[in-house]
Design a protein around this nucleic acid. Structure first.
Length: 226
DNA sequence: AGGATTTGACCACG
DNA sequence: CGTGGTCAAATCCT
């Protein structure tokens, strides 16, 4: 129980700003993983709800990867995707051959390594389109249940390709990978727009090669291991 | 029918 | 005590 929480704390977190297509309201977003939404909540100070997702294979493969998607208040075209943990799942059919990640029984010990590997994997797997699902502007006419406005997560759900090649080449610094050193997200009355403001103030806009940040993520930092 | 999403309640942390 | 994160039942969609 508490172990789990410890894990969470120890889990690496990084945020990515994802630009969505203003026209469709969707971006070719997706990391190639399957996410299942398990919650949505309105965050204090934020005008838009935050969606909580976790890997579909959480139960089947014990993949603890989760992510939170929240639309920026100021830039509706920006999606803040906060990723936590890494995928230990083989992603079902698994499209990437280089995934040499052994599914160790005790992820606790191999956690860090796996993280590094996976991050690295993600980084290098940029040009692997994987299962890209084209999003139809009109998937189902009958379903008019949700307001497309707040449904920013429909984009996130698509989770097909965060690393859209074309997108990369055209917009090298769409993502800003910033170490969430600031626990940030305390939506106090005074400190609104927490993660957002943080992102903008501290935001480190890495040109797309700087993902080393993730690898160098202070896993050993005592801060993450109370 | 199965799987995914929605939504409100519950729980833990700060 | 308030806020954020997760759970779980109900609902919806494929």
């Amino acid at each position: 129980m508490f172990m789990l929480q410890l894990y969470r704390k120890a889990m690496p977190r990084w945020t990515q700003k994802v630009q969505i297509d203003p026209a469709t309201g969707v971006e070719g977003h997706g990391d190639g993983y399957s996410w299942r939404k398990y919650g949505q909540k309105y965050i204090l100070g934020a005008n838009h709800p935050r969606g909580y997702y976790r890997c579909t294979h959480r139960h089947s493969q014990g993949c603890l990867a989760t992510k939170q998607v929240q639309r920026s208040d100021q830039d509706p075209t920006i999606l803040e995707v906060a990723c936590k943990g890494m995928h230990t799942c083989t992603q079902g059919t698994n499209t990437s051959p280089k995934t040499s990640i052994d599914q160790e029984p005790n992820m606790a010990e191999n956690r860090q390594q796996n993280q590094a590997q996976l991050l690295d994997f993600q980084t290098k797997d940029l040009d692997t389109p994987e299962t890209f699902q084209p999003l139809n502007t009109n998937p189902s006419p009958s379903s008019s249940r949700i307001n497309p406005q707040d449904d920013v997560f429909s984009a996130a759900m698509m989770d097909t390709n965060i690393y859209s090649p074309s997108f990369m080449s055209s917009e090298p610094h769409f993502f800003s990978y910033l170490p969430s050193l600031m626990e940030g997200d305390h939506g106090s009355s005074s400190n609104m727009r927490t993660s957002e403001s943080n992102a903008q103030n501290i935001g480190i806009d890495f040109p797309f090669g700087q993902l080393d940040l993730d690898s160098n993520f202070p896993f050993d930092n005592p801060k993450y291991f109370p």
